[in-house]
């Protein structure tokens, strides 16, 4: 794949229109890497002039902050801001709602001011600007339900944008009983992703997947690599992995467009 880095761009004296922040999951996690590649394919199709930081990218510090380590968070934030500002980055897009939230809400007061997009917002903008269309035949009529990531939904009130995209896919969407502002968390946030859950009688992702199964879907769509992991594990727990796939909206769009 042709994925230019900011350093490459700089060497050629060029400034891309947007920085794609890949995030840790999108860079290292095998499942999430597929989302990353799908999004890059979309960016290519829409002829977006983008770049990544590559090996200069580091953790945003979100997980450390939510675990209570404000020191580590601010060290990460200031280091990242130094690099981003040195490259004169103005616009950032990311497939990770946690990075999206941190950049948008927590970096500004530390000196990092950027226009920040979640990838569903960016894709929507590409469509609105006439740079991208969704053909929509491949997924026609499939039963789909969308799981709201907490850090996109409640945390930042982005509920409609991902749904706008889903409506363009020609699928048959059904809402779960708990959706939008009442959506149940997948269980990954607040640094839970990196630890065993406390004692209880159920795992959160199992409960959330049950919500999804009640809509009898073929596809569970989401917009967060961590939700993706949690829901995928939940589907396996319910022994439904043969009937149901968990997909990111970027993957669905890439699929619809035969990318």
């Amino acid at each position: 794949m042709n994925v230019p880095t900011m350093a490459d761009m700089m060497a050629q004296g060029k400034q891309p229109e947007v920085l794609f922040w890949v995030g840790a999951a999108g860079s290292y996690d095998d499942r999430a890497k597929k989302i990353t590649r799908s999004f890059v394919k979309i960016l290519h199709q829409a002829n977006v002039d983008f770049a990544v930081l590559g090996t200069e990218e580091s953790s945003t510090g979100d997980a450390a902050k939510r675990a209570g380590n404000e020191f580590l968070f601010q060290m990460q934030a200031m280091t990242n801001i130094e690099i981003l500002n040195a490259y004169e980055v103005k616009t950032i897009v990311t497939c990770d709602p946690h990075s999206f939230n941190t950049f948008k809400n927590e970096y500004p007061s530390l000196g990092g001011n950027y226009k920040v997009y979640h990838h569903t917002q960016y894709i929507n903008k590409l469509i609105a600007d006439g740079r991208l269309t969704i053909e929509g035949e491949n997924l026609k009529g499939k039963r789909l339900t969308y799981h709201d990531p907490c850090y996109l939904g409640r945390a930042n009130d982005v509920y409609e944008t991902p749904r706008d995209l889903i409506r363009r896919l020609g699928v048959k969407p059904t809402e779960m009983k708990r959706h939008k502002s009442t959506a149940l968390c997948c269980g990954a946030g607040g640094a839970q992703m990196f630890k065993e859950p406390e004692k209880g009688d159920l795992d959160i992702n199992v409960l959330r997947t049950k919500d999804a199964l009640e809509t009898n879907p073929e596809i569970i769509a989401t917009g967060c690599p961590y939700c993706n992991t949690m829901m995928t594990d939940g589907v396996k727990f319910h022994l439904k992995e043969d009937q149901i796939v968990v997909k990111d909206i970027a993957e669905l769009i890439a699929e619809a467009n035969n990318l």
Partner: peptide, 12 residues
Amino acid sequence: GAPWQYSQMDRL
């Protein structure tokens, strides 16, 4: 620079 033990050099 990542929550898991991967080298930053492998980011891309």
